[in-house]
Every structure is written in C-alpha cells, then in structure tokens.
Design a binder for these strands. Structure first.
Lengths: 346, 346
DNA sequence: TTGTAGGCGTTATCAT
DNA sequence: ATGATAACGCCTACAA
C-alpha cells in the first residue's frame, strides 16, 4: 500500500453563501440579502431567524462578490519605498488605522525604490481594483505618475511633489522646519553650520536644504559649499559623510542632518573620532523617530506628526473617492530641543 | 448662477472589460479570454490582434471577477501587532517580497495588540477571502486561534507558539541563541548577570528567559531573581527596568536584554547614571536591528534573519495553500559581538 | 479554432 | 414582505 500523505483540504470546504442560508431558512436569497442588511423590507421575525442561521453557519459575506457588483472594493493600495524605514512604518500605521476605522482594507506594496517594481506594483493594484492609492515616498517618487492618473484612481502622495491634476498630497512643512532648526543652531552662536543630506535628490532633501540655506542667508552667514555632504538617508551613509566634514581644515561646529537615521551615522562618526556632542559639535536631526530620545546624547530634532500624516492622507483619499476636491495639506513640524545641541566652544 | 464645483469623475469611466475587447475585435469574449491567457486554442494571428487591442485600451483583468470564479484571490493577509516596531517592519518586508514574487498581494492589518481589533481584522480577511494568513506577533498572540482555524484558511505564525493543527509557524531559536548570548557574558567573566525582559509574558520572552537561566545553570551560577526586571519591549520600558537593577545593593555587571529596543532604554539609563558601557557594565541585546551598530557603544546582540523569516513564512504558506504539510521551521540566530560587552572590572 | 451557455456570490430591479 | 431575474467580469465546459 502506497504511503498516503495526509493533506489538509482547505480547498474542499467552501464558505457558506447567501444561498446556503436561503435554503436552510426556506426563503429566497434576496430575502436573506435584505435581512442581512437589516432592510425594513423584511419581517422582524424572519430577519431574526435568518441572522441566527447566518451566525450559526459562520457566514461572512464575500467582499469579492460584492465588489464585483458594486464596483467598489473598499480597498486601498499603499506603495512604500521600504517598510523597513521607521519613518514609513509610522506613516503606514496611521494610514492603516484610519482605513480600518472606515472599513477599508489596505494592500501594502514595497517598491524597494525600484521603478520596475513600482510599476508592477501599481498594475497589481489596478487589477485588484483598489478604490484609491497612497504613495509614501520617503525617497524619490520615481513613480510614473502618468501611469497613475491613467488608472483613473484617486491618489494621495505623502511628502512628495504634486505632479498632476489627479493627484493630491500631504506634505510636511520642510522648508519652515529646516529654517527653524538651523536658526536654533545660529541662535546658539554657531557660525559654521554643516548639512548632511540625502543622496538621491529626494524632494524632501531639496526642501530641507533650502530651509537651511534660507536661515543662513537671513542671518547674514555665508553659504559654504564644503560644509555640505551627502549621505543616503541611512546611518550607513551618514557616517562617512560626517567623516568627510570632520576631515575639513576647519570643520563645522554644528550639523543639521537630513533625518534622524542619518544623524545616527553622524553621531557615530563623531564618537569614533573621539569628539563629543554637543561639547565639540552640535547635531540636529529630522523626524523625531522613536530612538531620538535615546541616542547619546538625546537628539535635538524636528518632530513630524507621522501617524497623523498617514491619517490625513487617508482622509484626503476618502474625499477624493467621494468626488470632492480636498485641499493640499501642509503639516507643520515642531522643533524638539534635547541635548545634542549647545553653544559652540569659545 | 450657482457656483459649480468642479469635481473629478473617477466613478464615471469604468475599466475596459473582456467584452469591450471582444466587441472591438469582433470576436466572442471567450476568445478574448483565451487569447489573453495565450491558450493554444486560438490562432496566433487573432491572439496577436486581441493582445494589441488589450494593450491599446489599457486592459487590466479584474482580479475580483477572477477571484469570484476561481475561488482563489491570490491574496494573503498579514496581521502585525504594530507596523511601527522595526522588527515587524523587516519581517513584513520579507513577506511582501516573497508574496510579490509569487504574484500574491498582501493585505496589511495592524492589531495594536488589541484583541478586539485583532478579531475584526481577521474577520475582514475572511470576508475578503484571502488565501492565507500570516501572523507576526512580536508580542503575545492574543489571537483566538480557534477562530482562525474555523476560517479554514492556512495560517503561519512567526515567533509565536504553535497552538493548533491547522497552524504552522516559523520561529527563531530563542533558547539556543539566548543561552549562547548569556554564555558569551559568562565567558567574559561575569558572575552577576541580569535580564531585562518584556512585560506581557510574550512567548519569545519566556524562551529567551529560559535560555538565560539555562546558561547560568550550566555554568553553575545561581539564579538571582532580583537581577531580572521587566520592561515592555520598548525603550520606554527598558530604561526604568534598568534603573531598578542599578539601584540594587549589588547591581549586575552585565545585562542581557529581551531585544535591541529594550537595550536602547537600558543603555540610556546607564548613561544617565553616569556609568560607562562596557567598562562598568556589559550589555547584550537581541535582534540586531538597524541601529545596533550605531548605539554608543555599538551593541553586541543576537542577529535574527528577519527578512528571511518573512520569506520563509510566505513559502510555508504557499505549501499549506497547495495542500502540502510544511515542516515547522526553526531558524538559528547568530551572536554578533560588538563593543558593548567586555570583561568585568577587577 | 471559435462561439454559446452557464456559474461564481453579491446587489438591485423588477414583479408579485 | 417576498421571490424571480438580471447584472457585475471572468473562466470553462460543451457545442459547433
């Protein structure tokens, strides 16, 4: 006798349908449908009976069948560059929260910042007939928006430029926040202030850099190109960028970093060099990620209401989906002063 | 004349269907269907023509219609306790990657470790007829597995116990890894070794604690209950837990932390106290998250192949979905020695 | 090789 | 108040 491998037959049992219930209750499936939606067009008695049966058989209406007829899937797609990025995680969390509250399910797709993958991801969303899409690009939106708008699906971008008329966005006030952060440094007495940015010409990077320059200019400080270095938005890139700055004949006494993760690398490079923060050099980050209060020393940074931004993005999408034309959203950020900044040494 | 608000009519245009193409091509929709699947049952010529039309009209087959007839949605659901947790993010990334490679889309749901929410999430998955579910519980699986198996949907758990016969799991070798980590400390000469755990009796916590105790026992060291403190799996909880340990009459000379995030808080508490790591006290974490090489000093920790675990989970699910009975997976971890551990002071 | 005719599980519009 | 009946967009026998 051949060895008969035991296998579970998930595929065997199919979930109860509205018709199954109709059969049991001895009514038509339309009545069941009505009862399940507690329509006033059905006797309280039969409605109750039907609902009981539904409960007993563990009935769960098929969203796919419903989606087919209503042409709404109550589903949105979220494209991220990497779920791994803590910034993304929090925004995503906000989106998911808001979506769930409104009965929407969210498809998650990670593009890995790869345009090809991004494209296939969006196509997958199209096939699945999502009602809307949000793109959270902490990096560049290599996304071909033409393709997006061709889908005729509402789209909301988070922290990325607003390239088309079918696309809305919620963005952090990068420029104001960066200016403020830099002014904090200037106010402390710093004159040689560096900037460690992102590598990929990310939209946010450009804005933050602009804020940094604006602050310098307002204070009548010269912009010194050699004081800006570029990392990659990660700690791995922040460290070497900072090392380059430290190797300068006269290095900066303070550095404004593109984001907290970059600051992590920057702090590391400083410590490796045997220097102290903020005694020898002041550092400010951007984002206020969970680890910011726990760096050594605790990081002065710009707080972004990430979770809230995610929620706002979803709500924008909701409006878009219902035919409204939501306003572009600019979210203010807030400087959080901790211990990585101080007056420069005399 | 009343102000007429311009509104975009996404709802107006409906996507091209197989019938639309059929009409244009002057064939029946079945032929179109076949051509699109490049079935051998259709002339190369007509197939080509049809495919061209499909391309021209931007046809995207409706996954919802297909799902209705095939009873397979090529969709999986992933339940996480919080996307915000960096550990979760990486595992999620692995799942998503593997899923996308196999043409599966992933629904993401964040339970916030709230059982009620967890339940509604799973019900949502059921309605959407996902083909499988993976639950990554970095905390306790408050999830009612009875409900899960009742769904008749394959389930894979990551780092959580394996409670039922319809459920499979992939887990890290917590016990071995923790024993090894503790032995590293013992090998360095430490005798008073503390443990800072998670609060919620998480399964992983229990195993890691067991590994810690096993190492002590093997080395003939006494287990000292006052040397174990509980945090909450986050930095916020790690700091006060460590403070308690430091307040002891004779505090530990080394501490093994439940995870890296906890270690972050632990390091902070130590620094606040004016102590140095590893000179005064050695610290080892667990997970090897992205920031581990950048703590001050760089953290000795246990590396978990998180991304890979995510991929393995999906592959397990694939097998389950095809009726196979995959083996339970235990993934080995690896101790990464950095600079937060050293011999105790004489 | 192609077309015709269901049917998947809903919702929705008719009748009754 | 309830029951037929017809979509929704796709797949798949079965017929031709």
């Amino acid at each position: 006798m051949p060895k008969k491998t035991r296998r579970r037959q998930y595929s065997g049992q199919r979930p109860a349908s509205i018709k199954d219930i109709a059969r049991i209750a001895g009514v038509s499936h339309s009545t069941v449908s009505r009862a399940l939606h507690d329509s006033p067009l059905v006797t309280r008695a039969t409605a109750a009976q039907i609902q009981k049966i539904a409960r007993d058989v563990g009935y769960r209406a098929s969203a796919v069948a419903r989606g087919l007829v209503t042409r709404k899937t109550r589903t949105i797609g979220v494209v991220v560059t990497t779920v791994t990025d803590p910034w993304v995680g929090e925004v995503l969390s906000g989106i998911e929260l808001a979506a769930a509250d409104h009965g929407y399910a969210v498809f998650l797709a990670d593009s890995n910042a790869d345009p090809a993958r991004e494209k296939s991801v969006v196509q997958s969303f199209a096939e699945r007939r999502v009602d809307g899409i949000v793109v959270t690009s902490s990096r560049v939106g290599a996304l071909h928006t033409p393709m997006l708008s061709e889908m005729m699906v509402p789209i909301v971008l988070i922290n990325n430029q607003h390239p088309g008329k079918f696309v809305h966005s919620v963005m952090i006030e990068n420029l104001d926040a960066s200016r403020e952060a830099t002014e904090h440094l200037i106010g402390l007495g710093h004159r040689r202030i560096g900037y460690v940015g992102d590598r990929y010409g990310h939209h946010s990077d450009a804005e933050r850099f602009a804020g940094y320059r604006e602050a310098l200019q307002k204070a009548g400080l010269p912009f010194v190109p050699e004081l800006v270095a570029h990392g990659d938005g990660k700690a791995e890139g922040g460290a070497p960028a900072m090392s380059r700055l430290l190797a300068l004949a006269s290095p900066p006494t303070a550095v404004f970093c593109y984001n907290d993760v970059t600051a992590l690398g920057v702090l590391h490079a400083i410590h490796v060099r045997g220097l102290r923060v903020p005694a020898d050099i002041s550092i400010v980050g951007f984002d206020d990620l969970f680890f910011a209060p726990y760096t050594q020393p605790p990081l002065t940074t710009v707080r972004q209401p990430r979770k809230k931004m995610g929620q706002m993005a979803f709500e924008s999408l909701l409006k878009l989906m219902s035919g409204e034309d939501p306003a572009e959203i600019k979210v203010p950020a807030e400087l959080v002063v901790r211990e990585s900044t101080a007056a420069p040494q005399a």
